[in-house]
Design a protein around this nucleic acid. Structure first.
Lengths: 223, 223
DNA sequence: TGTAATTTGTAACAAATGTTACATTTCCTC
DNA sequence: GAGGAAATGTAACATTTGTTACAAATTACA
């Protein structure tokens, strides 16, 4: 295979190795190597192609006006860069992308990739699944972040777990995980939960949470 | 035309009326009418088709455990319901959907619609553009909501406006709009901005904001 | 089963934001 | 230019969350 790593890429899932190879016979592509530390793309640059990490890894980084940087996330093979944004209106990279190590990228033009999807229904569905799943994820995160108080977030979270109607749910996340998910600190979450418990809204035993006062609990998550 | 309203749908943009009609000759679809107040879908229901509002309108609504509802948004013709979520893994409607008035919906199966996109590159690009643009929007909102303080949000917002490097930007939003965008109250935003001004970080004159102390301003938006 | 690592509970204080209310300024339209 | 609407500035106080620190409980696993 030309790019063996692609056989475990969700984008090419369902395609045989031979089929993947076949694609790269017919399509225009190029690969580029970047030494460790090299700038791959600059934030604000137009997204004109699909870029897939073949080896090494890259990181997304934000730069403020003084040049200080904040790392956002790492991208490893065989993931694509900013996959969910590619075909957006005036799509631009939201962050700088820097090579963590010696890295090789596979680059396919947007329009070329569109043709590929047009020709292979599986590829199309794979990409659509990736983008839509990302939108679902972002939308879900947004919902929790837009609740004002921690009580609201927690009430909503508990209410959305399976079994909420029966009044008994199982929460399989640690306080820390949940706090990160909500975008708050762990002690603040613990305090909010413990207050709700002492007010008789819920009762918590390990991972099991019982909903004692549905009405008051709900009046938190709905305003 | 069978569904004249579709000619001004972004999803069918670039297609002639005759072409749109042609599509509905060949594809399996159905339309359903709902009287005002009828439940169109229930939150959690699997998304199995593309649903486009042809006439009337529907609203997304969340229900808490006691049955109290919160309106999320209205969907008018010729918009589709939960368009960005359709092909997501285990995609389900995030909210209840209720008809505001007598409403007619055009319903096309997911797989049927996939075939349509497979057969028409313009349709495919239109849909991809819609989904990716939505992902960009959600990601942008998320960025601002995940900054802890209002100062951070504001500093980041100002820094992202064109002209920030020159130290002089134009903010075309009202305080109220910006406060909503940040998910905070207007007086709180006003206070934060006025404090930053009195500390010599920025100076504000109407819509023009001057960045006076880049270093300290940046130390806010990056941690 | 015992021990170390992880997770949770809690407290006191600081910081940030929300709430409410009202005065002032700017903008729009006639 | 006058008048009303919209937007902004500001203040006092309540509420919420963050921060830091430490003890207790639980879990993982040797």
């Amino acid at each position: 295979m030309k790019f063996p790593v692609l056989s475990r890429s969700p984008l090419f899932s369902g395609l045989s190795d031979a089929e993947i190879d076949g694609i790269f016979e017919s399509v225009n592509y190029r690969s580029r190597s970047f030494p460790a530390g090299a700038v791959v793309v600059i934030a604000g640059e137009e997204i004109s192609s699909v870029m897939i990490v073949l080896s090494g890894s890259v990181r997304g980084e934000m730069t403020d006006l003084t040049g200080k940087t904040i790392k956002i996330e790492d991208v490893y093979p065989p993931q694509a860069l900013a996959a969910a944004f590619i075909y957006g209106r005036d799509a631009r990279y939201p962050v700088n992308v820097i090579a963590n190590a010696d890295t090789e990228l596979l680059i396919i033009g947007k329009s070329e990739f569109l043709t590929l999807m047009n020709n292979d229904r599986r590829l199309l569905l794979n990409y659509l699944t990736a983008v839509c799943t990302r939108a679902l994820f972002l939308s879900d995160r947004l919902r929790f972040l837009s609740f004002r108080t921690i009580r609201e977030k927690y009430a909503h979270y508990i209410s959305s777990l399976p079994g909420a109607i029966s009044g008994r749910v199982v929460n399989n996340r640690t306080q820390q995980e949940l706090a990160d998910y909500f975008g708050v600190t762990r002690p603040s979450l613990a305090r909010a939960v413990s207050e709700m418990e002492s007010e008789g809204l819920i009762s918590v035993d390990r991972r099991e949470v019982r909903i004692l006062d549905i009405r008051r609990l709900s009046s938190l998550s709905g305003t």
